[in-house]
Amino acid sequence: MNFRFVVNPEVCTGCRTCELACAFAHPHDSKPGKSRIYPIDGGFKELWVPVTCLQCDDAACVKSCLVDALKRNPVTGAIELNREMCVMCMACVAACPFGCALLDPGQDAVVKCDLCGGDPVCAHFCPTKALSYVPIKKKDRIAG
């Protein structure tokens, strides 16, 4: 894990470009999929918070999955959902305390942020750099 996904709500304008980028980056049947990132009203004037998966260390979604369909990708650090393994029990959707495991009704599947396999598309498109994917400084790196 050499990169970290950084969210900086201070500069988010709530333009929802990330939401659109995510939906287009995760298509199914050549239609856009469900976005896994949502800029939401932060409760103060001109304050938006892009809410997406934090790839928690001790993740509730991973713990809740009784069939081990959710596993961390050791390269990207993202917790990835294996659709072939998923039995659609909704445990992870119900368990995530940030609401970032989602049901995509369009394709009848559970989805979550996968950091686009190591190059999050939303970060590329965010016009104010409220989202970025930055290298982790050596000294901050967790062993390995």
């Binding site: 932060g42 409760g43 103060f44 938006w48 918070v49 368990a95 305390p97 609401g99």
Partner: peptide, 26 residues
């Protein structure tokens, strides 16, 4: 897993997350 996690749905969890982070940013 704390049972409290299951007592709020994903939509409301996302809203709560935004509000919590919003308070910090503010």
């Amino acid at each position: 897993i704390p049972i409290a996690y299951f007592e709020v749905c994903d939509d409301c969890h996302r809203k709560e997350t935004a509000k919590t982070m919003g308070r910090v940013v503010n």
